[in-house]
């Protein structure tokens, strides 16, 4: 009896606490959503408010006029995110698994090899030279997928750590005694055991590809290959640039650039697809976490 109420009380506390956090997390985002629907003039005259004096759809009308650009950019980003995430998860788990094997001779060496990449990088100039001159990926869709994000040390260590703590040596040993090859152990035993961590890094990787704009910035000049982030950031940063001092020598008054509410609307359409898709993906994600809990 006593245990039950204790658990119940804790559950209530958790719910209340997380409710509060959720509100804190969402309120600022709601403010920009509302700002994107606020009349530009009202925004500047009366300030940002959850209950604006005048509403307006102008910002979205402006964006609908550009829907061709935006839809194509969505297409690019979705493709890149899907292909990038699948490849990345595969390569990452394959790299992390040997690192987790306590009796693998090169375990520490490999870990250090991976970790070193997290500390040192040669800078953008040399990697740009390599990718464009040797691999010729400039202005190809691969430029958005391959450089930088396919294997990150962070994810490798997350997976390795999960394996070392959640895959009992005994399972592998008994499989080895049964004569299973390493490949077979990896596919048949390790992969099914690593659903939670695969869910986690898939999520991280997908977000990373979805939000990436650096690869686009460096390697893409053709506008048909711009992803959604590149499109948004270009417009936002052009405005930023105009406001910064370095633009003053242009001395041109004819700049009719998107106003605050349009910029807010752009931010909204940048995250909208994730907000819509995420609950569906999350089902698998949470299932993964729970499957892991049962098996572990």
């Amino acid at each position: 009896m006593f245990k039950q109420t204790d658990e119940k009380r804790f559950r209530i506390f958790s719910t209340v606490f997380l409710c509060l956090l959720t509100i804190i997390a969402l309120l600022p985002i709601i403010l920009i959503v509302i700002a994107s629907f606020t009349d530009e003039k009202s925004l500047l005259s009366y300030g940002y408010s959850y209950f604006p004096k005048a509403w307006s759809f102008n910002a979205y009308i402006y964006l609908i006029n550009q829907s061709k650009l935006i839809l194509r950019a969505y297409g690019v980003t979705v493709f890149v995110t899907a292909v990038g995430t699948v490849t990345s998860v595969l390569v990452t788990t394959m790299l992390a698994y040997p690192m987790s094997r306590k009796n693998f001779k090169y375990r520490n060496l490999l870990s250090f090899f991976v970790f070193f990449t997290m500390l040192f990088n040669g800078g953008i100039v040399s990697s740009y030279m390599m990718w464009t001159n040797i691999f010729k990926i400039k202005n190809t869709i691969w430029a958005l997928i391959i450089p930088n994000y396919l294997v990150t040390g962070f994810n490798v260590f997350l997976v390795r750590n999960y394996y070392s703590n959640n895959v009992p040596d005994a399972i592998i040993e008994s499989a080895q005694i049964d004569g299973a090859t390493e490949m077979r152990i990896f596919w048949k035993i390790i992969i099914p055991l690593s659903v939670p961590t695969i869910a986690t890094i898939s999520l991280f990787t997908a977000l990373c590809y979805w939000n990436d704009w650096l690869n686009g910035l460096y390697y893409i000049t053709k506008s048909e290959l711009f992803g959604i982030q590149n499109l948004l950031i270009k417009i936002m940063n052009n405005v930023q640039f105009l406001k910064s001092g370095s633009s003053n020598y242009l001395g041109v008054g004819n700049m009719n650039l998107p106003g605050t509410s349009v910029r807010m609307a752009m931010a909204v359409i940048g995250i909208l697809p994730i907000v819509i898709i995420y609950p569906f993906v999350q089902k698998y994600f949470i299932k993964g976490v729970i499957v892991g809990a049962v098996k572990g």
């Binding site: 030279m129 464009t132 400039k138 910035l217 460096y218 000049t221 270009k234 052009n238 640039f241």
Partner: peptide
């Protein structure tokens, strides 16, 4: 795009494009 013009050009020139 104007905001990344300078860095894009210098990167491209360094990269031998």
């Amino acid at each position: 795009a104007i905001f990344d013009y300078s860095s894009s050009v210098s990167l491209a020139l360094q990269g031998g494009e």
